[in-house]
């Protein structure tokens, strides 16, 4: 993280702390940062919050990996074969515009309230977006690169492996990172509606008893996980793609 990034964090926390310390708002509205952090600690040691975090991470990553494993090949196929594109484009566009919360009842009817319904929901929220992003990444590979391959005797498979994939990889990793972020948004929707575990469930049950500090501890957990993953992927991006800098 940059110095400026850290500074903005510190400023927001300082403001929050000041508002809480001066009792400008009742603690049910805005508990102090210290109260939230200590609640976070209590949740961790006494209430198996780690387990909730773990199950949430599991749901997010299963859906994300499933989406990626399907979207990457299909996206590349769409970019190289007009017939695949023609068959799938309008269908994908239709599903892409459906709001994910509207799909919750359907996934529950079809798959019940187990893990599969949550993963299916996250998958629906991300796969259709990701496949179009991947197709675009593949389409943006300069024609010249492909033609260098053709004129050095590369076969289609070799062009895919030695040219298209490395050429599209940096922007694809960026798109995967952004998609992973969406997974978290949809996860909370899934866990708020129907779940008995996970960070979203913790937040929702705390709200029922107006335990605002617990709600905020839950939000804090998501924020920390999101920030950490994002930074980790950015770091990998810089390491893998040193030639871009």
């Amino acid at each position: 993280m940059t110095l400026l990034g850290t500074a903005s964090f510190v400023a927001v926390i300082a403001l929050w702390w000041a508002v809480a310390a001066l009792h400008l708002l009742p603690p049910q509205y805005l508990p102090s940062p210290a109260a939230v952090v200590s609640k976070f600690y209590v949740l961790l040691v006494k209430y198996n919050f780690i387990g909730d975090i773990g199950i949430s991470i599991f749901r997010v990553w299963s859906a994300f990996l499933l989406s990626a494993a399907m979207a990457i090949p299909l996206g590349i196929l769409m970019s190289s074969f007009p017939i695949v594109n023609g068959l799938s484009q309008s269908m994908i566009d239709f599903i892409r515009y459906l709001p994910v919360p509207a799909l919750v009842p359907l996934t529950i009817i079809w798959l019940g309230i187990g893990e599969s319904s949550k993963i299916a929901l996250l998958w629906m929220g991300t796969f259709f977006q990701l496949v179009l992003l991947v197709a675009d990444d593949a389409r943006r590979v300069p024609r010249e690169y492909i033609e260098i391959g053709l004129t050095t005797g590369a076969k289609p498979r070799q062009i895919l492996r030695s040219i298209v994939l490395p050429a599209m990889l940096p922007s694809m990793v960026d798109n995967l990172r952004i998609t992973l972020g969406w997974c978290w948004t949809y996860l909370i929707i899934a866990e708020i509606v129907a779940a008995d575990s996970g960070i979203g469930y913790v937040i929702m049950s705390a709200r029922r008893y107006v335990k605002t500090d617990e709600v905020m501890a839950g939000i804090l957990a998501i924020g920390i996980i999101g920030l950490a993953t994002d930074q980790a992927i950015r770091w990998l991006h810089r390491r893998w793609f040193v030639y871009l800098t």
Binding site: P142, A167, L169, Y243
Partner: peptide, 9 residues
């Protein structure tokens, strides 16, 4: 080619 004549990776 004039541009994209070599692979950046």
């Amino acid at each position: 080619f004039q541009s994209y004549s070599s692979f950046p990776w």
